[in-house]
């Protein structure tokens, strides 16, 4: 490809600055020699002009002026927020953005706490629960979380029943699934902790049973067969919780497998 004249000129200027002679270089580009020669000579004549050297007195007077300006500037008195922000603008900006994001997140999560299925903020509530569960690593903590989530689903269900609103079967299933998961966790807990968890589970199960009885008699929009099945599961869970609480059944001999018991509601 043919090299552009601008490129050739720049290349030759580089070589001239390293001490090469103009005429020697132009031999390689005879077609451009007439055009490039005066340009190279002109560039050379500019380059050899004496470099403008500032007068020392002028420089010194500027330095004196800078010193005077510094001396007359307001002396620093203690901590200045404006000065701190100016000196650490990137850090301050990062902290401000993080704080804003945290504030927005916390406000949204807080507002979502009372949301019900179908509300705009309900997915935020579920997401925050997922994050909380993810960050909880010990079995006891997870058992307590399952009970808390089961209580929340129970509360949400009661609100929907009061409003005679349509009840999503998934909500019903999740309420019972959270209880089941809490019961499962007790397998890995010591007797004392398992007994304490069982007490909470018993209260939770009792509330659920009462709620389901209310739902059966209410006008809310839900398949009655789903309610009946949920009540049946709730009774089975009650039996299992009773097993947990009694010392002789701690080994689980008399308790049916929770997996087998809940298969029909997990859909």
């Amino acid at each position: 490809m043919k090299q552009k004249i601008e490129e050739i000129l720049d290349q030759l200027l580089d070589e001239i600055s390293q001490g090469r002679a103009v005429e020697d270089l132009l031999h390689a580009y005879p077609e451009y020699a007439d055009e490039l020669r005066p340009l190279l000579q002109l560039a050379q004549s500019i380059s050899v002009l004496p470099k403008p050297e500032p007068d020392n007195d002028a420089v010194r007077s500027v330095i004196d002026e800078v010193r005077r300006s510094a001396a007359t500037a307001h002396p620093r008195k203690g901590f200045s927020l404006r000065r701190f922000v100016a000196a650490h603008s990137v850090l301050v900006r990062a902290v401000a953005i993080t704080a804003l994001v945290l504030l927005i997140s916390l406000t949204t999560v807080s507002l979502s706490a009372r949301s019900l299925p179908g509300d705009l903020l309900y997915p935020v509530k579920k997401l925050s629960e997922g994050v909380e569960y993810f960050l909880t690593l010990d079995t006891e903590g997870r058992a307590r979380l399952h009970i808390r989530f089961a209580d929340r689903r129970t509360y949400e269900l009661s609100c929907l029943i009061q409003k005679n609103a349509r009840i999503d079967q998934d909500l019903l299933a999740e309420m019972l699934n959270q209880t089941k998961s809490a019961i499962d966790c007790t397998d890995f807990l010591d007797d004392e902790t398992a007994a304490e968890i069982a007490d909470h589970l018993e209260a939770c199960n009792h509330q659920q049973m009462e709620l389901l009885e209310d739902a059966r008699q209410s006008d809310c929009d839900i398949d009655t067969r789903a309610i009946e099945e949920a009540i049946k599961t709730c009774v089975e869970q009650h039996h299992c919780i009773e097993c947990l609480k009694s010392a002789e059944s701690a080994a689980g001999d008399n308790c049916p497998s929770t997996d087998a018991r809940y298969d029909h509601i997990s859909q």
């Binding site: 403008p52 500032p54 500027v62 800078v66």
Partner: peptide, 27 residues
Amino acid sequence: CVYVYAHVYAFLYYRVPHPEDAEDLTS
């Protein structure tokens, strides 16, 4: 100050009618 003065002075030197103007502007 010295570093900036030298660079800016050279930059302005050929752009103003008199070297004194370049000095004033550079300051």
